[in-house]
Design a protein around this nucleic acid. Structure first.
Lengths: 227, 227
DNA sequence: GTCTATATCATGATAGAC
DNA sequence: GTCTATCATGATATAGAC
């Protein structure tokens, strides 16, 4: 048992990289750390992926491809069920953010590890990572923006786009679960297991997001900017 | 003109470090870059601060001390005006998040540069940075949590703490203004100056935060967790 | 206080034997 | 495909002249 099968090395590297990038960031996780944890040779990363940049690209790609397809399917299903009517905002929010959060329950999809990595990475400075994310997300984003425009015809489009962005930020932080979280919650986190925490967080986050999305429109000091 | 006064070096380093940490992250900004941009010698950082870690600590300290004192003053003022009654949620949110956002308008307080650095850093993985932030924020956080508990007696405390955290996340992302933002907004960012963007964002963010804070309570699948 | 020069170390990447 | 050994580079930090 525990013998090493061919083709195993690649996945072992991806799993170790996912965990260490999540924990230490891209710059902070070294190739030696990653290959050490994976139990493979240092040179294996360059053999299988070519470079460290190519490695993290693949770490994201193998999860995001699935996630974004699933998001498309979820929105398709809601639109089909709506029979031409606009999809409800709560359904759109669930299809986008709920689909992501439910990844955490499935270890074969990366579980909380990947989700935390994702939450962190949206704020990462590295240029090529941002380019990678922008490319992975572009199509999905357009679909969801369009759905929200239809669902909330009385809200200016600029407002919706901003609120989408605010929702992304709230979700990323909620997921990332850094000590910034512990800073606010402290007393509450103790005595709670990881999954329990996440299960209880989900309905809380959803309520918050929907409340923000449907908040009264802001008053601008100098009049509306896109009147 | 442009002669170098003694004591100037220290501030030049802090300003350059602030900008480069914001742009490239802590690991991504090297001492050579920082001293190069500041126009001082490489050895000057270690002479004035002792180490790179001590440098970024000072970068945060000189701004956060002011910000958190100001937050305390703002809440003091609202509580005095309320004469024993609970302070309104909108006033609390403005005292905490509005005070921070208004820093962006004052270049002598770091302006947008520091604000973006702050937004990014709450998600940074580095352990000692998290410790630094936790220490800087602890007292203020307790005051604000207590104020929100009083302002929203019908909302469970655990719910309030979570929503505070969601608000922090939304705000950080809004400020950080990475390409994750551009990814969602694209068409809208163009033809808008930096300050114009920020001025319009503020009322939008405030509405969103308040909408989330006052959202209907979530339904838990297995019953309320702290019933 | 400021500089040059350098010590020391860790990194990503690769050449080449097996 | 996997290994060892090593290269080239860039990092932080410091010793010591001025």
């Amino acid at each position: 048992m525990s013998e090493i099968r061919p083709g195993d090395t690649r996945d072992r590297i991806l799993d170790a990289a996912e965990r260490l990038f999540m924990e230490n960031g891209y710059d902070g996780a070294s190739m030696r750390q990653i290959t050490g944890e994976a139990g493979v040779n240092l040179a294996a990363v360059n053999y299988h992926f070519g470079s460290k940049e190519a490695l993290i690209s693949e770490v994201f790609r193998r999860r995001l491809d699935w996630l974004n397809e699933e998001r498309m399917r979820a929105l398709d299903a809601h639109e089909a069920a709506a029979e031409g009517q606009p999809v409800k905002p709560s359904a759109i929010v669930d299809a986008f953010f709920g689909t992501m959060l439910r990844m955490a329950e499935d270890e074969t999809l990366g579980g909380v590890t990947f989700l935390r990595l994702l939450g962190r990475t949206l704020g990462e400075p590295s240029q090529f990572i941002r380019t990678l994310m922008a490319h992975e997300y572009q199509t999905v984003m357009e679909r969801y923006k369009a759905a929200l425009f239809r669902a909330l015809p009385e809200v200016p489009k600029a407002e919706i786009v901003w609120r989408f962005h605010f929702m992304l930020g709230a979700t990323s932080y909620a997921i990332a679960g850094t000590d910034a979280l512990r800073l606010v919650t402290d007393w509450q986190i103790e005595n709670e297991g990881e999954m329990d925490r996440l299960e209880n967080m989900m309905p809380r986050l959803m309520s918050f997001l929907l409340g923000g999305l449907r908040a009264p429109l802001p008053q601008f000091p100098g009049g509306p900017p896109d009147a």
